[in-house]
Design a protein around this nucleic acid. Structure first.
Lengths: 192, 192
DNA sequence: ATTTTTTACTAGACAGTGTCAAGTATGAAT
DNA sequence: ATTCATACTTGACACTGTCTAGTAAAAAAT
């Protein structure tokens, strides 16, 4: 399918894996399928990834880096908050997001570079909570409010992406507006 | 391992599957492994479940029924809310919960009895939101607030169970108190 | 310029998987 | 006594991840 016989096989395999994840979920990613899609032998990907979870780790690393960018990017409206960026990232990058949030696919502890990217994204969220709470915020409060903020964004993202919410809340014409409405109150309550 | 040669094979297989899911996640559930654990041939479970996703559907059906019970059960404190019940259910029944929230494992639409149980649990949540908002609540507001409430509970549950939150927020001595703190503000904001 | 090493693969095999097809033993119904 | 459904067992097939052992070509070392 794509151009093999080069260092870019890594890129090709990764793209194929992400595409499969977006279309059918991470479990559908198979070593042999991505090889087939790249037009190489079933063993070729092993030269670029130690094993199947190595592919997942690479997707995580890339995904968390892109998530950090998305969280830091200027938001379209002053009324929009970081949770919205999180949810939009998830919906726009389902292939990456599904892998990133499946702890069982790869142990981040075993892949330091992926772990670093995940940490960075988390730190961005913590900083946002701190800035919402103001300077002299109690560290315990920061902890619970960070957990809260992540929960809201993550919960909405996963429910919209794969969960039963999609089925239940059918007939949402303007998804962006819906997301905005759901998260508006959420973040407002942190300030109070 | 358990007593085969009876209708209770179904129960035995189901228990084995839930146990595996709790220990290693739903992907570790294998037709042949549960058969082995039940002490029967690799094909025996097929008499009780159409295929692998049939097992997942059965776990969903059972899980959603138990979730409904948990949501309706009297709560320990007047200060405690339905989201807390949801999160506690998830943490106490990880084997079921992990399967219930993985839409890719089985298509609920194909298993009416499982679908019915899921619908019932969802309706309980909607009713709670309605009662929090009061009688004359706008249906659009009910929709967003239901999504919000589910997102908070679901997000916290999945993050605590499998997500990176466990790693990030290490050193939580009293988990119940933490959950309570995170969700207290959340539900309070619905009333306002 | 020749040898060695490294890179980027290919080819084959093995154990494990889900599941289709076909057989068997046992109890109930006719 | 025969039929029939239940609850299995056995065997096979295609598929999977991954181990081992090649190979062909380019880069590095001599």
């Amino acid at each position: 399918m794509a151009s093999p016989k080069s260092e870019s096989l890594r890129r090709t395999v990764l793209d194929a894996a992400v595409a499969i994840s977006a279309a059918s979920g991470p479990d559908a990613i198979s070593m042999r399928e991505v090889a087939r899609e790249a037009g190489v032998s079933h063993q070729a990907p092993y030269h670029h990834f130690t094993d199947r979870s190595g592919i997942f780790a690479a997707i995580c690393e890339e995904g968390f880096r892109q998530l950090s960018e998305a969280l830091l990017a200027p938001r379209p409206s002053i009324d929009s908050n970081m949770c919205e960026s999180y949810v939009h990232f998830a919906l726009q990058n389902p292939g990456h997001f599904r892998v990133m949030m499946r702890n069982d696919l790869c142990q981040l502890a075993d892949y330091p570079s992926a772990r670093t990217e995940a940490d960075r994204a988390f730190d961005i969220l913590v900083d946002e909570v701190k800035s919402l709470l103001g300077e002299g915020a109690d560290s315990e409060v920061v902890k619970t409010q960070t957990a809260y903020m992540w929960s809201v964004g993550h919960g909405l993202a996963t429910l919209l992406l794969d969960g039963p919410l999609e089925i239940k809340l059918e007939g949402i014409d303007d998804m962006n507006a819906f997301i905005h409405q759901v998260l508006r109150t959420a973040v407002a309550s942190i300030r109070a």
